[in-house]
């Protein structure tokens, strides 16, 4: 236990964790073809960026990062609302939410 209590967590730890989460989200968008899971991966990337904002804001000791996280939350809510509404509409018309099917049917 003495080892753990003397360990220090600094900015680099948080930025590393945030980079890992962000790239997991990127891989979800790139490799998955299910549109809902792609949306969820985008939310995961937004959360990773929020973690970066808050960590840097903590390092600098001000609150500007918090404000930007609040804006990112609002944008994420708007994006999820409109995006999922469009997705439901596409599903009603095409019967699929596979993005490869969209590409084939658009032509």
């Amino acid at each position: 236990m003495p080892d753990l209590t003397t360990l220090h967590v600094h900015l680099g730890h948080y930025l590393t964790l945030s980079a890992i989460l962000f790239f997991i989200g990127v891989s979800g968008v790139v490799f998955r073809r299910n549109a809902i899971i792609m949306f969820m991966s985008i939310e995961l990337m937004l959360t990773a960026v929020n973690l970066t904002f808050l960590a840097v804001s903590r390092q600098l000791g001000d609150h500007q990062g918090h404000v930007f996280v609040l804006f990112a939350l609002a944008v994420a809510a708007a994006e999820a609302g409109v995006g999922l509404a469009i997705l439901v509409e596409i599903f009603k018309r095409r019967g699929s939410i596979d993005v490869d099917d969209f590409r084939k049917l658009m032509e």
Partner: peptide, 15 residues
């Protein structure tokens, strides 16, 4: 991820 870690993980000052 590794490259980014090397780039940003160089600060060792505590908060």
């Amino acid at each position: 991820t590794v490259v980014l870690t090397r780039l940003v993980g160089s600060t060792h000052a505590p908060f």
